[in-house]
Design a protein around this nucleic acid. Structure first.
Lengths: 222, 222
DNA sequence: TGGTATTTCGATAGCAAGTCGAAATTCCGC
DNA sequence: GCGGAATTTCGACTTGCTATCGAAATACCA
């Protein structure tokens, strides 16, 4: 038997993912953790604190990936492609509603300070990447700041239609439920972005090849 | 004095826009409408029904614009540019949190059936436009369905960082609050998308010119 | 083993949603 | 303008959930 604290977080994670944060009652979490409702409060002051524990680290995954990609080097275009692909793929598989998390955490910036700091760092990293690309004449002249905001928002936007709500997924088109796989979506997003940003679009094919190569090798190496 | 029903909707609109739906109490709405809390229920069974009244028509604005743009004709690229610009601009100025509305309405698809139907129509319209562009060799070969989903989600994603929460807007970058005007963002989004989709990117400049022209004339004509 | 600190619990206060019957008001035929 | 019916409004109440609190149970340790 794990620590009760962990049980609570585990139960809450599951329920938040399945039903959303606001639709999850403290008593549901308690039940899942094998405790009485009031016992939860011994460990957490409220639901936000549980959510905080779950999401503070969320941004670290793409942040760590970005650091690795930057360490591995290569042109900005390649690094950005890889980051977008990775981030979108992560978001497709992400069990929580990132927009709900955004909303809740925006209402309570103190509790979620760490979340926002790291989110900001990710944004800065993307901005940096775009700026590098522009400086190196790989990308056409765009506003790195606005582009970075847009790119991340685009990735998060995928959840709006891709993420299952309750048990069913929102339709891509009436009836025909999207047969899209996360990586297919992720590559489309990255392709879409780079196709727009690159000065010489014919470079895209080789970038895609190198990206797939790099990340396949990683996966095997890990 | 307006009808109480209208007072309720007006008060709720204001409060939903300012504080979000979930943070708005029925008693707040009642107060705003000059009624007692329980009197609201004479007109609406619950908060969702009020929200429904407010949002059922939101998709009609871009849908009507799309119809007009299609009627006015021109290449698919131009029409798509205009639609994205219009939709993004609308969303920037849109007082509600579109993502919260999505979430609530996805939980209760029956109440919001009309909303989803029209949302679907908008999606179909974009898909159609993309398909036309591909068929006419204006666009490179993309999956129209996936592209349409992505384009709309991108537009909605703008709200994630642009929309004020409570009273303050989320930062674009620490401290320096985005000095971006809605139309600037809208043109960036449209430019970004078309720049990616167009086979011959040099067409973009003329498309932008024609779009600005068309929509300026409209505005004056109205 | 006994005493202290930690953990869990049941009872309950507080708050917002929603129900209900009754009071107040409006409407309308006369 | 009057009286009865329909509409509208209200206050009291029920319910469901969050969060608090003191006491009981349990774990820890000298």
């Amino acid at each position: 038997m794990r620590e009760p604290r962990e049980e609570i977080v585990a139960a809450a994670s599951h329920l938040f993912a399945r039903h959303g944060v606001s639709a999850t009652r403290m008593s549901d979490i308690a039940e899942g953790a094998g405790l009485q409702q009031s016992s939860i409060y011994y460990y957490f002051a409220n639901k936000e604190q549980i959510l905080r524990e779950i999401v503070t680290t969320v941004n670290r995954v793409p942040l760590a990936y970005l650091a690795r990609v930057n360490a591995e080097g290569g042109p900005a275009a390649l690094r950005l492609y890889r980051l977008i692909r990775f981030d979108t793929r992560t978001l497709c598989d992400f069990p929580y509603d990132i927009n709900e998390i955004h909303r809740i955490s925006a209402q309570d910036p103190d509790t979620f300070a760490e979340y926002w700091t790291e989110r900001q760092a990710l944004n800065d990293g993307v901005e940096q990447l775009v700026a590098e690309g522009v400086a190196a004449d790989e990308f056409r002249e765009v506003d790195p700041r606005l582009t970075a905001l847009t790119l991340l928002a685009n990735n998060e936007g995928v959840q709006n239609w891709y993420r299952p709500v309750g048990d069913r997924r929102l339709r891509g088109r009436q009836g025909t439920d999207g047969p899209y796989a996360p990586d297919e979506i992720a590559r489309t997003m990255a392709n879409f972005a780079l196709s727009s940003l690159l000065r010489e679009r014919r470079r895209l094919a080789s970038i895609e090849r190198r990206a797939v190569e790099a990340d396949t090798i990683d996966a095997t190496a890990d």
